[in-house]
Amino acid sequence: MSTSRFNQRSIAPVLFLAPAILFFMFYVIFPIFQSMQISLYDWDGLGEKTYVGMDNYVELMDDEAFYTSLKNNVIWLILYMLAIPAGLFIALFLNQTVFGMRLYKSLFFFPFVISQVVVGLVFTWFYDPSFGLLNVILGWFGLGPVTILGDETWVTYGIIFAGLWPQTAYCMILYITGLNAVDPEQIEAGRLDNAKGWNMLWYIILPQLKPATFIAIVVTVIGALRSFDLVSIMTAGGPWGSSRVLAFYMYEKAFSEYGFRMGYGAAIAVILFLIMMIYITFFLVKMYRDEKGR
């Protein structure tokens, strides 16, 4: 009797976890090691694989396009963070009781619901040098026309701006949920101590929104690192590759019309993985500490 109960206790969790673990092993862990292995080969995806050792990485270190992509990834990481304060601002703004507020909230959330492809197309038209709204508006002030997506200095910022639209909406919804959980008694207490405006926000509201901020940072960093769809839709990496990011460059080298260098693509993937690893480690350590602190 006692042994069977013991078995139940030890086996049940294993059984329940098994499907998830199996899928995770097979679709996440295994491909990581497979990518590392492929990155040591020269392979077009069809013929024989040739072992080339670290050649792909050596070539990568001497590849201008790789550094352009890396630089763009850093710009993405930094500027994408703007979605967090912007989301907070809109959340605070929408956190009032006015007639029809639910409708306004859902309209602000709308860009996150539509596909990234649609966002990309909308902004491509918005930026279009001949009929785009942006240049029409600039025209009223006697400026322009500017080709945001055809100019190597502006293109990445143009795409990031498009990406900020849905990302801000995402952060906004996180903060709106967070604001619902803010303790009214603490606000009351703050009021009694004469806290207003910025002080109230900074010392009373924001600390209570910490969990929401944490999640917002996590999703924004991930969003920035996997920025692929917008680049692909809006510019296909152009002009002359100046809006590439690592994820897109990897796709281009491995799967696009002119690519099919699986080994080289895998090498880029491994580098991207290492960069993500730094961030993931930081994230895990922080989670672990927070758990322990409780």
């Binding site: 055809g150 152009g238 002009p239 002359w240 590759g241 281009e252 019309e257 002119y258 690519g259 099919f260 260098r261």
Partner: peptide, 22 residues
């Protein structure tokens, strides 16, 4: 150009032409 030259050369070549035009 992209049928006479191998794929990778074609891609980097045409990217270079585009850059040159600007």
């Amino acid at each position: 150009f992209d049928r006479d030259a191998p794929a990778e050369m074609a891609k980097i070549g045409m990217e270079g032409f585009q850059e040159f035009m600007v």
